[in-house]
Nucleic acid binder design. Structure first.
Lengths: 192, 192
DNA sequence: TCGATCATGTAACAGGTTACATGATTTT
DNA sequence: AAAATCATGTAACCTGTTACATGATCGA
């Protein structure tokens, strides 16, 4: 349900093609919402049918023609009324945590690799968010409501990544401990 | 894909009925994976067909008979080989952040309500995780690999909630600022 | 008496993923 | 020569949500 409103919000800020929207989801909106190009094109089609968008055709030679989408009044009103309805927080679904829950069966080397991959991802994302902050939100206190709210969304992304990094520190400390112990000697079996 | 492995991991630790598994997803696994009872029953059916589980029938009067599921050798092996395959980190999809991205169109009162709801949720979750930590993981350093890894998953949940609370502080500060300003006076329009 | 808890499901639908398709231009 | 970027989509599939169904017991 929220995909369409993410599209409307993005287009309302700046009309764009499906391709450009897909890119925004991968970059500026990475901390907010995610969608593949297939999903984007499908949903744009629906929004068009429902008269929430208008298309501006931009002919091109060599490439498929561009279609730039614009939000209509109907679209803006649908977005507004959605904004007033409270939304539940998204459920957690993280395969890495499922693995930790499996516990004993886990191979520690495989886990170590996955943790370091996650760390790389987090560092890269955080770096990218900082670049965005620099380029779009240089002086938050001087900006208007619109940008300050967008900046708040970005801050959420940054705090989330930092929180992952803090957890990864704990995780890697634990991993080091587990590896220092003999593989089969679980502490419960040892006498005090 | 991960739902089935979450079920296998949970059942491997302790055989259970679909109903009990649904409850675990809402409680101990809230920070790990989420699934509705419909999803649980459907997936248990599939896992049974694929011989990854066995059923133990427990007849009852008055209520539908219980079916307690147990992981088979096939199931355990499927779980193990999944554990070795690296999993991508889950994409972010949060309607609240979509709203912030919409920025200007947002009604600040509606936003304030939603933020305080989120805060309540985070406080409740964090409190619950602390209860779990107390009851299951009293002395982490004394426990074996299995519980220490599960505890690490729980720590992730706790850090995530704390990170939300930190962000909510920022959010509420910003909201107070925005409300202190006249509604239509965006700072860009003001002279320095 | 109304809602919650226990305990199981089915069916339809919406949302998200994977695979396939085309084809020029630019970068490695 | 191969891969990435630009630019659009279709089709099939899998996962997750919503609605419906049954029926007893227990506490407010």
């Amino acid at each position: 349900m929220a995909l369409r409103y993410a599209l409307l919000a993005a287009l309302q800020e700046q009309p764009a093609t499906g391709y450009e929207l897909t890119q925004r989801f991968r970059t500026r909106l990475a901390n907010v919402w995610n969608a593949s190009h297939q999903q984007v094109y499908r949903e744009l089609g629906r929004l068009l049918e429902e008269k929430m968008l208008l298309v501006e055709d931009i002919p091109q030679t060599d490439k498929p023609d561009k279609k730039r989408y614009h939000v209509t009044l109907v679209g803006r009103q649908a977005l507004k009324s959605w904004l007033d309805r409270p939304q539940p927080r998204p459920p957690v679904r993280d395969p890495l945590l499922v693995k930790l829950f499996a516990g004993e069966l886990l191979d520690l080397d495989a886990l170590a690799d996955e943790l370091s991959q996650r760390r790389q991802d987090a560092v890269a994302q955080l770096g990218y968010f900082r670049v965005i902050e620099h380029t779009y939100f240089r002086k938050p206190e001087r900006m208007g409501r619109h940008f300050r709210l967008q900046h708040l969304a970005l801050r959420r992304g940054m705090l989330a990544e930092e929180s992952w990094l803090a957890w990864l520190d704990e995780a890697e400390t634990l991993l080091a401990d587990l590896r220092a112990e003999p593989a089969d000697a679980t502490s419960e079996d040892r006498p005090a």
